[in-house]
Write a protein that binds this DNA or RNA. Structure first.
Lengths: 333, 333
DNA sequence: CTGTTAGCGCGTTCAA
DNA sequence: TTGAACGCGCTAACAG
């Protein structure tokens, strides 16, 4: 029955096994150059005393913590939750721990959280930082090694990002292939990078298809915004609707049902994000699934590479997977 | 222009300010007994050199890391995400960092993760641990200070838990008040604690209402389980259905619509959890909202109390809030 | 192969 | 009020 009044340290083991500290240290670290018998004895007493080396002390002397920090803008956002999960599991597989910091959309806190958590860890993953580009550019060098998720390419850090532009483009092509020539886009927050990416996709599509008409309608990012857009949508006469995201699409779907408009017979509707409930709407929603978990895994891979002396791809892009469901069909003739 | 080739330590500051290490240390820690002028000079050089004390070294000497660990069974589960968010934000407000570990439902990993992360931190929050009670009871004493979320009361640690039993009971009473006397319950995983709590609620209700009939139907925890249960549900002749959770309820709703059964005119359906989309189903779903974020906040409060020498309530219970929507109405006459 | 010694970077006695 | 010395618990270089 070991005395649990105090944590047992390497000194206790050394004394109990009648060897020096170094020998215990060597045994615990699997250093080969130790007499097998001695090693066995040390291991035995260590086990008996329930000894484990203090991670803190090891970190101090080794200069590494086996921990990385992740800063997210909002832990309530499913996308960041999924990214975090991807990072956490991938890092865990490589024997790393994850320290997490939620800036709760307080842009002013981002920098502090990043610097503070970085100091306690071996590296940092910055998820979709909200700070302006000049500030980010100035911050990154002091944070190295650091990986950025979902921002434009950076000089001072590898970036792993979802390609919203290509994804929306694929959604547009899908509607075109169904015979739609008159589309409407329900825009999200005007200033946001992801909305800009979507607008770029629409511009690409217009260039590629001269006969194509795409009306841009200001809307929002939630269910109510979509529901409120129904009149504007119907007024355009468009046959295919691209919603900023699935919530907007669901709101629209709901209002369309109230109006008696048949989807997809009269109108095709596509969402974005492929949230878990997109498959349960009436009709099930065509959408584009952002591979958030994989984004996290890739971010970890990039950081791990830099942590182990390797080098990471400066810019990794993951294209959301278009999921075709019953809310889109041939344009009415 | 500071030389960034190496991290600046307390020694550098001391030398630059021409004082001893101790003085710098005192100044940085706001120790009052320092000459104001000297303190100002030290602060200036520290700022100039961009010096911040190494959290690692401080932790080693102070014996605390200002960090706590959270072990969750599944980072993909919205409930644990919400609990984590509650913990993270509350801990952040108190100046603590959060180390996170996801056991990914590998029961065998739980113990190791708990012990390992606990050693790197000042305390631990164990979320809905899946391990059997004997193992948990044996593990907790060595993890102190530790707080457990969503388990039965423990001897060796404060527990913060949602009161599923009372919540389901309230849902039952709601249906009874609407005139329902014949109910059916779609059970989740047989062995789970939360299913047991629900069954206890049903037993309570039966005791309180002699005329009440409640049929228990094995089902599952997801949309498809609910959808598959439609025939069994209709066969019971019950007028009010209690689904294990919202997903099951949504699946049932979907199949009922296919069958042409009107909800809530012919049949009332209640879910559980109040997931974000419960309000968007057709009809919107009556449910019970588990206050997961608050659960996390309470868990933090309990741990923080023990971290600061205080004492925490041994068992805190939070009752989910019943949310009445259009999927439940008066029983058909 | 093993033990002794010197730090890792800091907070905190103890004298001065 | 300040500085010198010690120790937190451990690893690594250096002798033996």
């Amino acid at each position: 029955m070991a005395d649990r009044t105090r944590r047992v340290g390497i000194t206790d083991v050394a004394r109990a096994a009648e060897v020096s500290l170094s020998t215990v240290s060597r045994v615990m670290n699997g250093n080969a150059t130790v007499d097998p018998d001695l090693a066995a004895r040390v291991r035995a007493t260590a086990a008996e005393l329930g000894y484990t080396a203090s991670p803190l002390a090891r970190s101090l002397v080794l200069g590494r913590t086996q921990t990385v920090a992740v800063v997210v803008p909002d832990l309530a956002n499913p996308t960041f939750q999924a990214i975090l999960r991807g990072i956490s599991r991938a890092a865990g597989r490589d024997g790393y721990h994850v320290l997490i910091a939620d800036s709760a959309e307080q842009v002013g806190e981002e920098r502090l959280l990043a610097e503070e958590t970085r100091r306690r860890t071996d590296g940092l993953i910055l998820c979709a930082p909200r700070m302006p580009q000049p500030e980010l550019a100035g911050l990154l060098p002091g944070l190295s090694p650091v990986v950025v998720v979902n921002r434009a390419p950076q000089d001072a850090a590898p970036v792993v990002a979802a390609d919203y532009r290509t994804a929306l483009r694929e959604l547009v092509e899908h509607l075109i292939s169904l015979g739609h020539r008159h589309l409407a886009y329900l825009a999200g927050v005007p200033g946001s990078a992801s909305n800009a990416a979507r607008l770029a996709a629409l511009a690409d599509a217009r260039d590629a298809h001269p006969g194509l008409e795409i009306v841009e309608l200001p809307s929002g990012v939630d269910f109510d915004s979509g529901a409120a857009s129904v009149d504007a949508v119907l007024a355009t006469g468009a046959t295919g609707i691209l919603a900023f995201n699935d919530l907007v699409a669901m709101g629209l779907l709901s209002s369309l049902a109230d109006r008696g408009v048949r989807v997809p017979r009269q109108l095709s509707v596509a969402g974005f994000d492929d949230i878990p409930f997109a498959r349960y709407t009436t009709p099930p929603l065509t959408s584009a699934a952002v591979p958030a978990t994989e984004l996290g895994e890739r971010a970890w891979a990039a950081l791990h590479a830099r942590l182990t002396g390797g080098t990471a791809e400066p810019f990794t892009t993951l294209t959301p997977r278009v999921v075709l469901r019953a809310s889109t069909a041939a344009a009415p003739s």
